[in-house]
Nucleic acid binder design. Sequence first.
DNA 1: CGGGCGGCCTGGAGGC
DNA 2: TGCCTCCAGGCCGCCC
Length: 274
Amino acid sequence: MPELPEVETVRRSLERRIVGRTVTDCIVRETRFRTPLDPAALQVALRGRRIVGVERRSKYLLIALAGEDVLVLHLGMSGRLDLARRGTAFLPHTHVQLELDGGDELRFSDPRRFGMLFVTSRAALPAHPRFTGLGIEPFDRGFTVDYLLDRGRSSRRPVKNFLMDARVVVGVGNIYASEALHRARVRPSTSVRRLSPQRMRCVHASVRAVLASAVRAGGTTLQDFRDTDGHAGRFQVRLRVYDRAGEACHRCGRTIRRIVQAGRSTFYCPGCQH
DNA sequence: CGGGCGGCCTGGAGGC
DNA sequence: TGCCTCCAGGCCGCCC
């Protein structure tokens, strides 16, 4: 479900409400995730620990605890975090609860179980297998047109797949890759190394613009995305191509097409993307 | 060895 | 109503 704007939206809503709180207990009711969860390790690391910060790296949420440890959380496709009063009704597939002082609890639900959570030390994080290969953050200073040109120089792959490659740049998933390329007027099937510097500059600016705009809108809610307070995103009404196959392009009027690239749906306008 | 593809899961939508 | 197929916002490992 979540790409950078959705994860960042969750991060902000979490940060407002859990920093300074202490985890009193951790209840695990499901351990079968893609990487199996170790309840004992989680409980030992979390119980009695104060939450000192909430950060994001790529599509991972990092809940920093007093001391050296960090709770790492990934929402996968269907993961969701909810902050709620203890004892209130909870969503189906609520697999983990963090009980907080003051009577609230943070609930992690994930029907498809593509998500993951684990505890590691802050020092070990960069070397963790899930983090070592990660590319640059799209809002870091190092994410430049030259960086993209350099990384794309020897690659014949389609620019859409390139943008979705987390080894190149993190946070761009299936929705925002299509949206950024529409904004840039670049056809998703274009080979990266065939993009002129001018067109790459446009792709670069469009990635940032689309992501920033989606963050401001609180993410995209297609079916079930919510922040930790249960609020839906508002970017779905601004989508220009994603999930609009057969509809008219708002820019040129031509009919939006759906194709499949690397096993994922891609949407583009044949009229104004070349 | 870069990168496409199948698989991991559940659930919702749509066809018959 | 049921049963089938297809599809879904991510990621990993296999294998060409």
